[in-house]
Design a protein around this nucleic acid. Structure first.
Lengths: 281, 281
DNA sequence: AGTGCGTGGTTCATTTATTGAACCGTGTTA
DNA sequence: TAACACGGTTCAATAAATGAACCACGCACT
């Protein structure tokens, strides 16, 4: 059941590393018979979603993809799509959300959705540049974003915002490693006192983060029982937003987010009803 | 025959003016049964090429389009695709081809493919800005491009390049009208003496020209018997390149190019073995 | 309240297109 | 020269797509 879908699935096997695929190879990859593979390719080709290299006889994604993408942008401009996804996530977790995108070499706020459920909320300036050393989003970007961000860490002095702010490049590198394993990052008052941040990456087509999605929780609501809900929202947002922007999640990316994999805690603070984030390390 | 293709054809009905379509309406548009329409949409939705607005229940192009477009750019970057299409056209007509794209408000050379079949050929400087009043490409752009180009015609003085160059805005407007009906434009030595130019538009997603494709013929080979071949090459190039850049041909665009619809001739020159371009007017 | 119409979506017997093993011709490699 | 992998084709068997009728819902107009 679902011939059309099976045909479309042929498109899944094209990737950055393998933009052209031959008939037999695609037949092997998809597990379908060579004849059916060919039929599917022909159908896709007629529509323009597949193009055959007349020399090598191998197949690649066709120009119709561009037309559809342009139409998509009309139907749902990138940020509009992101906004509605963030809104529905906001309904679930009841906290403010914050989408930032990497522009050149700085992480900039692209979209803010504030919670409508609480009067005490984290309000963020939408014009702000996100400091890479002081926020969960920044750690995420260092871990999943372009390597140059990580490499030149510490070449410029890191600004201190609160007494929790990380300013030592080496400790930041350590945390970034943990973020890479966990898939998400958190920060506790390292940018603004009383604000707990949780962030996960949004990937581009090349499986490198193009931005982050973050949930900001005021200290008063930062109880550990709410953490699983936050993380699961974050996880689905990473997938939805990556899809929304036309990106691709790396295969190595965690399939779920574990509360115990937090990278930041409040040193010296006794375990209490607040997030106990680093006990599992 | 071709279920997958029928499913994909559902995507054809989405447009700038109609980015969201409901089930019944799409069923009517496509002529397919409502049940099959729904099945197709479901298949496309599962792949991500269709997304349903949960509120209005109507459908729109999905985020997978963006992913595919990004893959397409990897497999065949826009200009690379254009180059190979121009090469094969060059093999057919045996003349130099010239792709220009509108950048801001000037028409710039993007790609030049010179003929390999003749030693006498038209060579074009690839860094050149194409004067809109003196070339076939310019006339095409005025006719099919953004309206502001046409509207502010004559607000700046028009440069004269040869004694054939058009510098009077009113006569240019007259020619542009003809080009709009014909679908293609020609120029005879209005930019450089001895060069016959033939151009047709390349359309963007909004059915407005984003550039032009031109064939440049040296006077020595400008015989009228070669005109049909040139025009048919131009016509297929308009379609291929428009597809290559993800654009869409307007419904009103001519389905073929007629030699008699030429807009430019050599005033005063007797009819001879050269192109007799305006005799049909 | 009721009536009619348009909507999105479902059902199931009928029809029709999809499927895949085997096959062909060609080019490459050993 | 022989074996192999490639792209592509054939055709009987089969499994999937199809569409008329139908349902439930919402809305506008009497």
């Amino acid at each position: 059941m679902g011939t059309a879908l099976n045909a479309l699935k042929m498109l899944e096997y094209f990737s950055n590393s393998q933009p052209e695929i031959g008939l037999s190879q695609l037949s092997r990859l998809s597990g379908a018979n060579k004849a059916t593979t060919l039929r599917h390719l022909r159908a896709l080709e007629e529509f323009g979603l597949i193009e055959q290299n007349p020399m090598s006889k191998s197949y690649m994604i066709g120009p119709a993809a561009l037309r559809l993408a342009a139409l998509r942008e009309i139907a749902k401009p990138g940020l509009e799509g992101a906004r509605s996804q963030m809104r529905s996530a906001m309904q679930v977790v009841g906290e403010s959300l914050h989408l930032s995108l990497l522009e050149k070499d700085t992480l900039k706020t692209a979209l803010v959705v504030e919670t409508t459920q609480h009067s005490v909320r984290v309000s963020l300036d939408p014009t702000e540049i996100i400091p890479i050393n002081a926020t969960a989003s920044g750690l995420c970007m260092l871990s999943f974003g372009p390597t140059f961000l990580f490499e030149r860490l510490g070449s410029d002095p890191l600004t201190r915002y609160t007494d929790q702010t990380l300013t030592d490049p080496d400790t930041i590198r350590e945390r970034v490693k943990l973020v890479g394993r966990a898939g998400w990052a958190n920060s506790n008052g390292s940018y603004e006192d009383g604000v707990y941040g949780f962030a996960s990456p949004i990937f581009g087509i090349d499986q490198i983060a193009i931005g982050t999605i973050a949930i900001a929780v005021p200290e008063s609501r930062a109880t550990s029982e709410r953490l699983p809900a936050i993380l699961s929202s974050l996880h689905t947002l990473t997938h939805e937003l990556t899809a929304n922007f036309g990106g691709q999640i790396p295969e190595t990316f965690p399939t779920e987010f574990h509360p115990r994999q937090a990278v930041d805690s409040i040193p010296g603070e006794p375990r209490n009803e607040r997030f106990q984030l680093s006990e599992g390390k």
